[in-house]
Design a protein around this nucleic acid. Structure first.
Length: 284
DNA sequence: CGTATTTGACCCCC
DNA sequence: GGGGGTCAAATACG
């Protein structure tokens, strides 16, 4: 068993490796269907650092607890473990909890755009719960929802619970002339996976890479680039807003159909896979 | 001025 | 009736 410190170091190292890989791809763009998209790499980086932060900030937990959280994070529990809302059973397609995610960051970016539609004081919690629905709820009849609530003060932990499925991405892509996967839950079965480790027959230890909301990542990448030029977030946001308004959904190009086992480029695999022998079925 | 957020009221289920 | 989820008008923001 690795210590949590080693685990955090592994996450950081992997994030660093992905960052290097991303830089390489940005410096030398290659139209190779087998390569990992910049979006996927960026998201991997974000998740690695989020996990490292979680580990370092969660000293009150035992190491096993931390690992348990990591292995289940961003990953829908088995059907028999999923809780079901006792309220609003009429909306059965949307009311069942799909998955949840704990993060020290209330502004954790999960790859989707959300619009807040309510906030409630919850009886048994001193913290209010915020309700969000997918920003494409109207445009694309997307039924995905989530609510977010602070569940721990010190260190702060924010629990985001997701409901329903994103149909917005599917609909957007159909508009653009292709289809791809729609949300993290669906991605489980459609994820692009790489396998490593020694017991592949018994356990799939992998890095699943989903393809979603490249627009958001492009926005973040653009922000970083813009900051380097202007040093001003506000200016960057204005530029990005204008650029994205002119092309709402058209430029998305998935790097694979999403159903087959896919590969990172070999240099990334060889260099990094040994770092991940404890990251069970990591869903990005 | 258009869009996002806030917040009190309402609805639904237990 | 109580609690949680949603609606929608008011408000804030860019």
């Amino acid at each position: 068993m690795n210590t949590s410190h080693e685990k955090a170091v592994q996450a950081i190292l992997y994030g660093h490796s992905c960052a290097k890989r991303l830089k390489l791809q940005l410096d030398h763009p290659v139209a190779d269907a087998r390569s990992v998209s910049n979006y996927d790499l960026t998201k991997s980086i974000v998740h690695c650092f989020s996990d490292a932060i979680s580990i370092f900030s969660d000293k009150s937990k035992s190491e096993d607890d931390v690992f348990s959280d990591l292995s289940s994070r961003d990953y829908p529990p088995p059907l028999h473990q999923r809780s079901h809302s006792k309220k609003r059973k009429n909306n059965s397609t949307n009311s069942s909890e799909n998955w949840r995610h704990d993060s020290p960051d209330p502004n954790y970016y999960d790859g989707f755009l959300w619009r807040k539609y309510g906030q409630k004081t919850i009886k048994q919690s001193k913290h209010q719960r915020s309700y969000y629905r997918c920003s494409y709820n109207i445009d694309y009849a997307c039924g995905a929802k989530k609510h977010e609530q602070k569940i721990k003060d010190n260190p702060p932990v924010y629990r985001t619970t997701y409901f329903g499925h994103h149909t917005c991405r599917i609909n957007q892509n159909q508009d653009a002339g292709f289809t791809t996967i729609g949300d993290p839950v669906d991605n489980l079965e459609n994820s692009r996976m790489i396998r490593f480790g020694q017991d592949l027959d018994q356990e799939t230890i992998g890095l699943s890479v989903s393809v979603k909301d490249e627009k958001g990542i492009i926005k973040e990448e653009t922000m970083d680039q813009c900051r380097g030029i202007t040093g001003n977030d506000k200016d960057c946001q204005t530029v990005i807003k204008e650029n994205h308004q002119s092309s709402p959904s058209g430029s998305y190009t998935p790097s694979s159909s999403g159903s087959e086992i896919d590969m990172f480029d070999s240099d990334l695999l060889v260099e990094d896979l040994d770092l991940w022998d404890r990251y069970d079925l990591y869903d990005f």
